[in-house]
């Protein structure tokens, strides 16, 4: 258990600033998710923490100790790779015991530890098999067991669920969260999947172009996006943004409802011409244009199935949004302007 801190860390590959002066603190025992589009620098940041990359500037601090100049093996971190990176020529038992043999642990102690880790992930049956004889889900468990076995101070997980099929991914996500709770080891988890990030993270750091844009709990990230990037990156479909003078007006599709269901004293009305309705089972997505505006304002409404109001393509309706669900962003900087989405000092 330890804190992990990035102090103004940068990594440039020639001209590309993969990581551009990031300050970040993962608290003790915290599950911190690094979320961002591909190429945002999240994996590079994780590799910097692991010691697999040397920073161009800045420091990595683990448990209060500056480890920037230490090789990966001296940092006592464990990493699970997207490809799992199991050693293909070694049995599952040898794969799991590799980190222990590397530190020269006694054979008896190794055996006990391997059994403990294998039992934890339910892979005792596979100990004598080679990785190629395992399914994707089993390989992922072996990779986790290998990471857990030497009880590192930090777990680094690089999209460990992205090679699993959708059904397995849900149960694996659930298990992962439980293991982390039990072990209470500080965990940094990289993903581009917002559902994973929202479901797993104690806090989420949203990255874009090598910078941390916002860091906060899933509720804060979703409810108070700091700028238009976070607003449109999180949420599916993303937040609607409509030009209005020197600012953007933003509202979530699920907050944009027909007048008869959404109306209250503090709601704002928008005349809405529907162009297309998509039926998705649990909800309907209503695509359309806001009328009476200079620029074409395409917006989406997400209506859960319990809202039965009739919405037909080609018709014009009055839709409303509650005032407290409306966000305003500066048109130039993209930053939130009415104070509520401001930095809460949790960066």
């Amino acid at each position: 258990m330890a804190t992990v801190e990035a102090r103004h860390i940068s990594k440039h590959f020639d001209e590309v600033r993969a990581v551009d002066g990031i300050d970040l603190l993962a608290r003790e025992g915290e599950f911190l998710v690094l979320l961002g589009p591909s190429g945002c620098g999240k994996t590079t940041l994780m590799r910097l923490i692991a010691g697999l990359e040397q920073p161009t500037a800045g420091d990595i601090v683990i448990d209060g100790r500056v480890v920037t100049d230490l090789p990966p093996r001296a940092r006592n971190v464990a990493m699970v790779f997207q490809s799992y990176a199991l050693y293909p020529h070694l049995t599952v038992a040898k794969n799991i015991s590799f980190p222990l043999r590397a530190v020269g642990m006694q054979r008896d102690a190794i055996r006990k530890k391997v059994e403990w880790a294998a039992r934890m992930f339910g892979i005792e049956r596979f100990l004598d098999r080679k990785p190629r004889q395992l399914s994707g889900g089993e390989r992922q468990r072996v990779a986790l067991a290998r990471a857990v076995v030497r009880e590192p101070v930090v777990f680094l997980l690089d999209e460990p669920l992205s090679n699993l099929d959708a059904k397995l991914r849900n149960s694996a996500r659930d298990e992962l969260k439980q293991f982390q709770r039990v072990l209470a080891t500080t965990t940094i988890y990289v993903t581009h999947d917002q559902a994973e990030a929202m479901g797993l993270g104690d806090r989420i750091a949203v990255l874009n172009q090598g910078k941390v844009i916002q860091i906060g709990t899933p509720q804060e990230i979703y409810g108070k996006p700091m700028d238009t990037f976070v607003a449109t990156f999180i949420g599916s479909p993303p937040m609607n943004l409509v030009e209005e003078g020197a600012s953007y007006v933003g509202f979530r599709p699920e907050a944009f409802l027909p007048r008869e269901v959404g109306s209250s004293e503090d709601s704002v009305a928008f005349p809405f011409r529907v162009t297309r309705v998509e039926y998705l089972g649990a909800d309907r997505l209503v695509y359309g244009v806001l009328e009476g505006r200079t620029a074409e304002a395409h917006v989406i409404s997400k209506l859960p199935n319990n809202i039965r109001a009739e919405v037909v393509a080609g018709e014009r309706y009055d839709f409303v949004v509650r005032k407290r669900e409306i966000h305003r962003f500066d048109r130039n900087s993209g930053r939130h302007i009415d104070g509520r989405g401001d930095d809460d000092g949790n960066r």
Partner: peptide, 17 residues
């Protein structure tokens, strides 16, 4: 794959191992 080398490095293996 580079991942395998990286995994070994993180797992505590030095150059010879």
């Amino acid at each position: 794959p580079q991942d395998i080398h990286d995994a070994a490095a993180v797992d505590g293996a030095g150059f010879w191992r």
